[in-house]
Design a protein around this nucleic acid. Sequence first.
RNA 1: GCCGCUGUGGCGAAACCGGCAGACGCAAGAGACUUAAAAUCUCUCGGAGGCAACUCCGUACGGGUUCAAGUCCCGUCAGCGGCACCA
Length: 801
Amino acid sequence: MKYDFSAIEKKWQQRWDEDRSFAATDDYTKPKYYALVEFPYPSGQGLHVGHPRSYTALDIVARKRRMQGYNVLYPMGWDAFGLPAENYAIKNHVHPAEFTRKNIAHFKAQLRSLGLSFDWEREINTTDPEYYKWTQWIFLQLFKKGLAYKKEMSVNWCTSCKCVLANEEVVEGVCERCHSPVVRRDKSQWMLKITEYAQRLIDDLDGLDYIERVKIQQKNWIGRSTGAEVTFGSTAGEDIVVFTTRPDTLFGATYMVLSPEHELVKKWMPLLRNQEEVKAYQQAAAAKSDLERTELNKDKTGVRLDGVRGINPVNGTEIPIFISDYVLATYGTGAIMAVPAHDERDWEFARKFHLPIIEVVKGGNVQEAAFTDCATGVMVNSGMLDGLTVEEAKEKIIAWLSENGKGQPKVNYKLRDWVFSRQRYWGEPIPMVWCDKCGWQPLPESELPLLLPEVESYEPTDDGESPLSKITDWVNTTCPHCGGPAKRETDTMPQWAGSSWYFLRYCDPHNDKALASKEALDYWAPVDWYNGGMEHTTLHLLYSRFWHKFLYDIGVVNTPEPYAKRTSHGMILGENGEKMSKSRGNVVNPDDIIRDYGADTMRLYEMFIGDFEKTAPWSPKSIKGCKRFLDRVWSLLDKMTPEEEYSPELESAFHKLIKKVGEDVENLKFNTAIAAMMTVLNQIDEKGSVTKGELRTFITLLNPFAPHLTEEMNQQMGGETLLARAAWPQYDPEKCVAQTVEMVVQICGKIKARITVAADAGQEEVTAIAKEDPAVKAALEGKQVLKEIFVPGKLLNIVAK
RNA sequence: GCCGCUGUGGCGAAACCGGCAGACGCAAGAGACUUAAAAUCUCUCGGAGGCAACUCCGUACGGGUUCAAGUCCCGUCAGCGGCACCA
């Protein structure tokens, strides 16, 4: 009989549906397993062949866990707020919800055709008011705990989206989404205090089973550095506080630099003799986009504040003060002490402006280049620090500064607070009301969800306000506190909001009393295994860890971390090794592959394509190999004999296969698991027949990879229950070991013979057999044996002269 | 510049703790079946030499440690990803 994949796949998808085969149960007495993949943004292009790589991998894990007796939660949903739907709406004058609804239907049909074992009864959608009610609820809790605040600040402004971006969304000075230039603008924004969690976000990584590069990338992004704050005096009277990681070099400070935006510049303006020059520099700096600032970073610019001088607290020396955009307003205190002898940037600036360079750590030639090595130098020209190592000097000067009220130890982070407002329509409305009398007031929880109102036009206004600001009926409301006239916040939340807690909603998706019941959360959290893309490491992953920690702090969840294990898959590239894109014309549509080869072949190929964690180019020819394999598996039905046992020839091979496939799945080595199954198939074909017991084991192991084909074969073999419910096969470790092994005999490291010996043969026995071998005999002829190295079961190396 | 990863046949890749390099698959070549093609099956398949058994070379490059190195150490080069004036 022919392997009719389309009929078989349709049949079993329907059967699983009717049977509710993959529904997670709410029986909290069973051991649970929560497998999670990142829910997609339902774009108009439909499913990309990259999506199933992640989904199939964890589908295999989920299916295996079910067979191992776990109550498995493997859910799917839609991260459906976002710009593409809104841009489509602007262009075509349709509601973004309409466009989104269609896309979801398309995505869902595509995912179903892959036979993924999602529990569709728990499907969620971030744009559903029943869902975003709880996104808004979390925001209110953040506000109540002082972690959400509104602030007038300089923000990243995308000139095309007419919208504020988070730092994380600006890539090389352009908008991550539309690649338009990003400029700085002052705007009043809702902010979330993720910085308050910076240290915990670093510390708690230690106990987690994340792949190392994810941990490293998160730590780098948070960017912890330790040093000191030092208070300098000034001839104008005000103190200038600077942050430095090298307080030991304090005696080498020959000038100071403030960021152009620093408030002291404004204050001192009347005292300055070169006001015009200073103002011009400030304006030029503000007008620069991030990209321009980056491009110009080789050539230092700046202006001296002529009329004010700084005073070094350690020796009273007066030094000049500059403004320069190489000092960032948003990091540390926005001001630095410059030590050109021991900092490359300061050195460059000092050279350009002819400022003195004073060596305070011996070891380099500071007239040639900055000497930045902390490990070897000894302090000089530094009064009380002379003769100390850098580390000793740091300690001593910090103690001195603290005693004299001139400074203290300080830790800084590169991580900044999360800009949480977007001037767009298609997002969750921020449930806040502005009252001239009472200030910002949270909406009462009973009024949630605050629905997204209907609007005429989805475009942001030219002055950068949200389209919601045009609906006066909606904007004008009453103050929840005093009842007086008030206005609603018209900004919406960023796309990251809904995805920062979605994994919790799956635990209890239809609850209207809470984001999920306490019992459900206590049972299901944390996610046991979360797989997703590296591109989400510093955005989604960090944001959701932050929200989860907050929810832990207020008692909603009982685990401090959302995900116990995090892995990452490599991207699938086009056939030419480039990223798949419409413009390159190398896009592969999964529907075509499923139509021509079937979902099982598609799944198998995506897992066989290469190392799961690495990028892999798509190869249409290689797909055929996977189809051929499944064809050959199917034809085993004709070669089956009725015995329930393993045949003596293949018994050991099957025990090894069970072990191998099981371990490989746990270690993301799907490609070698498949290769092992192919090898055993080759052995069966060579032998010419397969016992019923062998075939049952084989299709059970293959089931998570190719679920439709194996279910059909199971039924044809007389299986009455679903293979998806079968028990995962067991192996006997003793039977994994072969009776005899082939060992290599080397003379001086060169292979001379291969001998077959009992697996447990000792050195003497093996040596005796080896020396009988003609080739070994010949090689040892007339030589004296110096040494014998014996590795049981592997090799014998005889060193002779 | 800094951090991280990678470099193995014509191609995708294997190789646990240092122990037979190239499993498995693709492509290619030869043959069988066929009127023919497709499909399927059998064999060959890193390079050089030899009729052959076999020998030598070979995991980006240059050194080193070791009985033994794709694997460990030092240095160099190339590619990919992330960050990028963070004081």
